[in-house]
Structures are given as structure tokens and as C-alpha cells.
């Protein structure tokens, strides 16, 4: 991998991200390491490289959740649409230097408009939507842009405190150029009053860090008589070149 030999990444700021042990989110208590992470002072090719998904074959509606699922496959692409507020979720993937990250895989998943996931294990009272699956994926373009069309997910209750609710959110996964830049997060919707009440949001200690997870209503990119748009830019770790080898 000669192309990666001189690359490394801006160290991840572990005080910016949520700590592993964040007792307000109860499940972290038994799932957080007690030992310190072992820092690799010189990450190797194993950490600097990562998969390139430009040859992954995708379907024409993989990024269009309004069209990509029908309980009855015979109705695929038909007029039956999911219930809920139609939204465009879009944005740009850039690194910490503001450099666009082209051709990288962005994946997302979410509950339907009633707050119910299409998952064997979700038993929430809200019904499944026969026309909504809840998964999307796409590659960013040359300039790092990605785009999905979906419905706004509903909030839902979950067992943490006696009455905890998740704000409306879309899970987002981005690969970036390396396994070092791998990032999974959640996009929240600007103005949602449930955001400051959420134990998972509150695993973050810095209010500025919460701001990085909020999709902004973007009227300029909304479509008249069709759908609203939320812009959600993603920042992955910055890539540096090492000009001088410090070994030997």
C-alpha cells in the first residue's frame, strides 16, 4: 500500500466524543472498558488503509427511502408511499481540514414516522408502515456530497429512565478514507425539544459537540409542494502527510 505509507490522521479527541462509561445512558455501565485504551504511537498500514466501495453494486433507489421498500415486492416503485413528513437529508462529508471526502460510503437507518423500526426485535406499539423499510446508502460524489430522500422518523420511548424518549433521529455511518476515520453517529432535527432531554445525546459533555449532530432546516434546498430539506454535514478525521520518517 505505497499510497498510504505516508498518511496518518489527526488524533481522535476522546474528550470531545462521548466517554465509554456514561452512566446516564445505563447500558454503557456494563459495556465500557475499565482499562485504558492502548495508544498506537505509530499507526501501521493496518490502521491507515481502508476499504474503497466504488465497485459495490447498488440499486437505483438505495438512497431513496420513499421508494426502496414495499412489503409486497410486486408493489415496488408503485404509488403506495410511506406515511410521514417527506424530507431530503443531504450534506457534505469533509475532513477536519475542510477537504471533501469523495466516493465514500454513507449508510443510514431509522424508525418510521410513528417511531417504529422494521426490526425483528422492535415491539413498540406504533405500527410498521408497509411501504417503509428504513435503510439507505450511497457514495459521496466528487465533491463529497451525499443525498437521501425519506420521511422524518418519529420519537419513541425506550427503557432507560422510567420515561425516556429518543428525539427523532437518523443513524448515520460513514467510512471515510481509512478504518481510522470510521464514524457512526446520529442526526437529530433542529429545534426538537427532546434533544436536551435525551440520555444518549447527554453522553456528550460539550454542548458544541451536540451541535455537530444536528441537521439544519434548509429552506433553499426544500422543494415547493413536495418536501423539506435538512442539511447534515459530516466531519471525519483530517488526513496528514508525513514528510519526514522518524524511524531509523
Amino acid at each position: 500500500m505505497p499510497s498510504n505509507d505516508n498518511k496518518h490522521y489527526v488524533p481522535r479527541d476522546r474528550n470531545w466524543h462521548p466517554p465509554a462509561h456514561a452512566p446516564g445512558y445505563k447500558t454503557t455501565v456494563a459495556r465500557s472498558p475499565r482499562q485504558a485504551l492502548v495508544s498506537l504511537l505509530s499507526p501501521t498500514v493496518s490502521e491507515r488503509a481502508g476499504p474503497d466501495f466504488t465497485r459495490l453494486r447498488m440499486g437505483p433507489h438505495d438512497n431513496d427511502l420513499l421508494l426502496n421498500f414495499r412489503e409486497d415486492p410486486a408493489l415496488a416503485g408503485s404509488a403506495g408511499l410511506p406515511i410521514g413528513e417527506r424530507v431530503i437529508m443531504f450534506g457534505r462529508v469533509v475532513d477536519q481540514f475542510g477537504k471533501p471526502v469523495p466516493h465514500t460510503l454513507v449508510e443510514m437507518w431509522q424508525a418510521n414516522a410513528g417511531g417504529r423500526y422494521r426490526h425483528k426485535k422492535d415491539r413498540y406499539l406504533a405500527p410498521l408502515d408497509p411501504n417503509f423499510g428504513g435503510v439507505g446508502r450511497c457514495l459521496t460524489d466528487e465533491s463529497g456530497w451525499y443525498r437521501f430522500r425519506t420521511v422524518k422518523p418519529g420519537p419513541y420511548p425506550w427503557p432507560n429512565d422510567v420515561n425516556s424518549w429518543r428525539p427523532a433521529h437518523i443513524h448515520v455511518s460513514v467510512m471515510g478514507p481509512s478504518i481510522s476515520t470510521r464514524l457512526v453517529t446520529q442526526m437529530y432535527f433542529e429545534g426538537d425539544p427532546l434533544i436536551p432531554l435525551c440520555p444518549i445525546v447527554n453522553t456528550l459533555r460539550d454542548p458544541e459537540a451536540v451541535e455537530t449532530m444536528i441537521g439544519r432546516l434548509d429552506m433553499a434546498n426544500s422543494r415547493s409542494m413536495d418536501c423539506l430539506a435538512y442539511r447534515f454535514d459530516l466531519v471525519v478525521r483530517g488526513e496528514l502527510q508525513t514528510y519526514f520518517e522518524n524511524q531509523g
Partner: peptide, 9 residues
Amino acid sequence: LLKETASQT
């Protein structure tokens, strides 16, 4: 430097 987007479970 821009801050990295924060991680969530």
C-alpha cells in the same frame, strides 16, 4: 481544525 462530528452508539 474542524471538530470531528461526534460519535453516537
